[in-house]
Computed example of a mutant assay.
Amino acid sequence: MKKLRIDILSDLVCPWCFIGYTRLEKVLGQLSVDKQLQPEIHWHPFELNPTLPAGGEVLNQYLQTKYQMTAKQRQLNQQKITALGNEVGIDFQFTADMRIYNTRKAHQLLMWAARSQQQTPLQKALFLAYFQEGKVMDDTDTLLDIAVAQGLDRRDCRQVLTDPGWSSAVVQTEKQWLEAGIQAVPAMIIEQHILLCGARPVTELHDTLDGLLDTLPSLH
């Protein structure tokens, strides 16, 4: 058995983060069987849109303005993302009225969930809620429902969402990663020294992790 630490910076409204993690999950599943791998995943916040107001903005308009895209370019980009998602079992649902939201509250929950080792189930549930179910991701009750469905306590989660200390912790953590040179997500740090930026292909992830595993000691 070999333990492998992977730190992931992501935002739940980033489709490339969803694709990147799902590819990683596929590779880890293969390696867990082939090499008795025990992955240890730690999620870290990276807000793409920290100044978005409550209720968010219409996604299509937001993308075209922020990235100076035409409607056609944005449509083609979403078609590409949808196709890549389908390859790994993600059913992206981009609709005309889909909105993009401030994710600070979600990151507060994710940071707190590390204490009970529930980060990954919660992160996956947040991805699904946004990209496949069209949930309002800055709504407190929506976030609480998602968290409770993953076995977390509603009262504890509500305290996390209303505690300004957790909001400050998210901001401070993001600042530290920015100062460390992380400018975009997804970003994965393998064993605290190998940085993989972007949604890397499955074959590349497999080769990178497989080669690294050969250098790690086995657990006894």
Rank of each mutant, 00 (worst) to 15 (best):
K3T: 14
K3G: 03
L4R: 05
L4P: 11
L4Q: 10
L4V: 10
R5P: 06
L9N: 11
L9I: 12
S10I: 14
S10G: 15
S10H: 14
D11I: 01
L12V: 05
C14R: 07
W16T: 12
W16N: 09
W16V: 03
W16Y: 13
F18A: 08
F18C: 01
I19G: 05
Y21N: 10
R23H: 09
L24T: 12
L24S: 05
E25N: 13
K26N: 04
K26M: 03
L28E: 06
G29N: 14
Q30H: 10
L31C: 08
L31H: 10
S32D: 07
S32K: 14
D34T: 10
K35Y: 13
Q36G: 12
Q38L: 11
E40A: 12
E40D: 12
H42V: 13
W43Q: 02
W43E: 03
W43D: 01
F46M: 10
P50Q: 01
P50E: 00
T51H: 02
L52P: 03
A54P: 14
G55C: 07
V58E: 13
L59V: 13
N60C: 05
N60T: 14
Q61M: 05
Y62C: 00
Q64A: 08
Q64S: 00
T65G: 07
T65Q: 15
K66E: 08
K66L: 06
Y67I: 12
Y67V: 09
M69R: 09
T70S: 15
T70Y: 11
A71V: 11
K72M: 15
K72F: 13
